[in-house]
Design a binder for these strands. Structure first.
Lengths: 338, 338
DNA sequence: CTGAAAGCGCTTACAG
DNA sequence: CTGAAAGCGCTTACAG
């Protein structure tokens, strides 16, 4: 036999029609048990596999999900944020468990997201994961919605569609950080990260942090806040600028672990001891966090559960089922940096 | 218009035949420039995208590569080796650059690798990446070869087919580690990692290490070697067992960074100072390496180049071009652990 | 340069 | 329970 076996080859050897082969292979109950067995045996012998291009074309679906990882254009090309890499791992597993393939694509935030995937029948739905400026994404979400594309999104809220978002309870996570500082009597707090609507996740973390401090009669001074995107470099420079401006604080909440790690580097350089002089808390619990010096106290986002929820919710959307907005509970992981 | 636009829709609006639309969209030179333009304009207006299932079915190819990440069954389900995660990132980028999609799959080492991909016309070729027992893989490589599946493999050599492998010059990397120790007069060396043909990469690293030591009249005592797979846990336990057996050494070469990080934990616990009492060198240069305490000296494998080479070589194989065996040069990254 | 037609390998309504 | 047939949306040899 040349090339791959087709259902016609099996039909030939089994002495039945190709339709029956197709039915048998799909375990249709319309097929005699004995026939089914014969077909399966021959399929196995011929190392037959259904041609997905053909079956997808026929059924107009794909059993494939697409993951679009869009990146902050300012971040270093060669380094992917480890948090998203971990998410990618868990999403891959979750897809496999559900019998779906995963098409992975890295996009610059500016590109035409859905173009290459859903529209070309390559994927039944899209998972969006990114760390750019969320304001840029809103018009794209609108396009996706208009075109009735099935998608779920990590972190970013989509207008009036809370069901399309899976994210960590960032507000609650921020509160955890504040509680932790208060429990350790560190009330002179700094915050590093972009607390604006360009980074709604960071903003929520900050809000929770601030509100919990306020509930304990502690104010956070605006001068003790510095902007940073989620990179080590950015956290380093933001912290340096605070130090250079002679801003004092004894506790620092960073909007992400990468920022926190950069902050610790800047603090060390300025001979400020962590945690003695400044207690540092990050967010994410990336793998690196437990290995830095000192090990980083952080707010964990469970990437395993997050990936599963993204996949589960997307599959529900695809099947037309109802989906709830999904908030994952964060957990404080105390380590030596605080 | 309901549903997606097809080439027939465009043909209708453009007042040409569907064949011409197809030709125009594929930039066939057999199409009048004006016609081509008209077709493109209408395609854009209708938000038309070629149905890949249909075109793949017709052309019997897929413009898709599959990445099979097969895992050591003993490793923790929830944690993917960061080195492979980094590779995944660079492979994804390299595919995008070449206009190929990437289908990602995690496989247990026991599964039927090629089954779901090449056979079902989903991918034109496979990239194999893994960290299990290489002996288990040889029969699978044979199957893949028999079926004339196009594939490339990271690290593992395939019988008589050096062109199918891309890997780091592990032997040379091992030599670098030995040179480094010798330059610092650390000649009482230990090695941690599975130096057997089950892990040919680790074995090569060890061989290079040993040979370079020998070239400097330094022997490595077999008692100063301990087995470990590439996890922090495993490195930790292997090092503990050396310490428990009262084995002395002032330099430790770990077959991977994860092992090295576990080793450092064990050394610290035993109040053995790194690097004062024991200098430690790892392998990989994963992101964590520069953040651990002390920062880890390591042999870098350039994952960006590695991913590119895997993709490039695979595409050459698919196009039937000649491929050379590819050895990537390792680089010593000196840090404070040695 | 263009069009009519075949065919890639399936799934499934229709008829029995 | 089974078969003959249509059709998913393309690409491309063939004929003009």
């Amino acid at each position: 036999m040349k090339g791959k076996a087709t259902s016609f080859d099996i039909a030939h050897y089994a002495g039945v029609s190709q339709s029956t082969v197709s039915r048998a292979l799909r375990n249709s109950h319309l097929v005699n048990e004995e026939t089914r067995k014969r077909v399966f045996d021959i399929a196995k012998k011929l190392n037959y596999k259904v041609d997905k291009n053909a079956s997808n074309l026929r059924t107009q679906q794909s059993s494939t999900l697409a993951l679009l990882l869009f990146e902050d254009p300012t971040s270093d090309e060669s380094q992917i944020n480890p948090f998203f890499l971990a998410m990618l791992g868990s999403i891959t597993r979750a897809c496999a468990k559900e019998g779906y393939d995963l098409l992975v694509s890295f996009q610059s935030a500016s590109a035409d997201w859905q173009a290459d995937y859903e529209d070309s029948h390559r994927a039944d739905g899209i998972i969006l994961l990114g760390y750019g400026d969320y304001i840029d994404y809103q018009p794209k979400f609108s396009t996706l919605l208009e075109q009735n594309t099935k998608f779920v999104c990590w972190g970013a809220t989509v207008d009036n569609r809370p069901d399309l978002t899976v994210c960590c309870d960032n507000y609650g996570g921020g509160k955890l950080a504040a509680e932790h500082f208060i429990a350790h009597s560190r009330t002179d707090c700094a915050f590093i990260g972009d607390a604006s609507d360009h980074s709604p996740e960071f903003f929520s973390r900050f809000q929770g942090f601030k509100d919990e401090l306020l509930a304990n009669n502690v104010n956070i001074n605006e001068r003790k806040m510095a902007n940073a995107i989620s990179t080590e470099e950015s956290g380093y420079h933001a912290t340096r600028s605070l130090i250079a401006n002679n801003i004092k604080f004894n506790a620092l909440f960073a909007a992400s672990d990468l920022i926190a790690i950069g902050a610790i580097r800047a603090l060390k350089e300025a001979n400020i001891n962590v945690p003695k002089d400044v207690a540092v808390v990050g967010f994410d619990n990336i793998a690196i966090a437990s290995y830095v010096n000192p090990p980083l106290t952080t707010i964990e986002q469970n990437t395993t559960v997050a990936g599963q929820m993204l996949v589960e919710n997307l599959l529900k959307l695809i099947r037309g089922e109802e989906v709830q907005s999904t908030l994952l509970p964060p957990i404080l992981i105390p380590r030596k940096s605080s």
